[in-house]
Computed example of a mutant assay.
Amino acid sequence: MEQGFAEQVWQQAAPTFNSKILGPHFEDLARDFTRRNAHTLLPGGLPGPVGTTEVADQAARTKHGVDVIALAAGESPQAPRARIALLGEAKATAARRGTGDLERLERLERIRALLADQGYDIAATTLALY
């Protein structure tokens, strides 16, 4: 930087900045947006607790991270058969929407099915991309 290579330094640092700072900040913004505005979008009105979670996938021997999960109003995160109002994926990008977004929705559909298999009520779950 001191030698006048700020542009090159930024190009090298940009992927780390995007994944470690911009991405998590955007995910926080998506959860905050859900807390404040989901009542205007969700069929059930006001959501309950909003946060993030990981969902176990025994068949694939992995866990799927969920950027935004909102339970239905009145539900508790500890409830074994909680109603899930919303599952969301948050991606901070300036890229145009494309097939990657369809893949994200397919991933959310898989997660919704896994949650149903685990006993959660997903009958009115909305899928969201941020």
Rank of each mutant, 00 (worst) to 15 (best):
P77V: 09
G100Y: 13
R97N: 12
I21C: 04
H25W: 11
A113I: 04
P43A: 06
V9M: 12
L46S: 09
R104M: 02
A113E: 15
V66A: 09
N18F: 06
A72C: 13
A73C: 15
F26Q: 01
Y120F: 13
V66P: 04
H64P: 03
A13E: 08
F33H: 14
H25Y: 13
L115W: 12
E103A: 09
A95L: 14
N18C: 02
P80L: 09
R104V: 01
F33E: 15
L42S: 10
A92G: 09
V66F: 05
A85C: 04
R31G: 03
L42N: 08
L86Y: 07
A59N: 13
R107N: 14
R61G: 13
A85S: 13
R81H: 14
Q12W: 01
D28Q: 15
T34Y: 08
F33Y: 14
P80Y: 09
T34R: 09
N37E: 13
D28H: 10
D57L: 03
D57F: 03
D117P: 00
H39E: 14
F17W: 12
F5R: 07
E27Y: 04
A90E: 10
A73V: 08
A6P: 01
I122A: 04
I84T: 01
D57T: 09
E106W: 07
E109Y: 05
T93M: 02
G23C: 07
G100E: 11
A79G: 08
Y120S: 01
T126D: 03
A128G: 07
Q11V: 00
A116L: 10
Q58I: 06
A72F: 05
A116T: 12
L71I: 04
L108H: 05
A6M: 06
L86N: 03
A113G: 12
L86V: 01
G100Q: 12
R112E: 04
M1S: 14
R35M: 10
P43F: 00
A95V: 04
T125A: 11
L29P: 00
D67C: 02
D28Y: 00
G88F: 02
A82G: 06
A90V: 08
G48D: 11
A13S: 03
R35T: 06
E54Y: 06
E2R: 15
A90T: 05
A92F: 10
R36S: 13
V68P: 01
T34L: 07
A85F: 06
T52A: 15
G119S: 05
V9P: 00
D32T: 11
L114S: 07
E7Q: 12
D28L: 11
A30D: 14
P15N: 03
L115E: 10
A6V: 08
L46D: 13
A124P: 00
Q8L: 06
T52M: 13
V68S: 02
A113H: 12
R36T: 07
A14Y: 12
I69E: 02
P47N: 11
G45I: 06
W10Q: 10
Q8C: 00
L127N: 03
R104N: 13
L127E: 04
R35Q: 14
I69D: 05
E103F: 03
V55M: 04
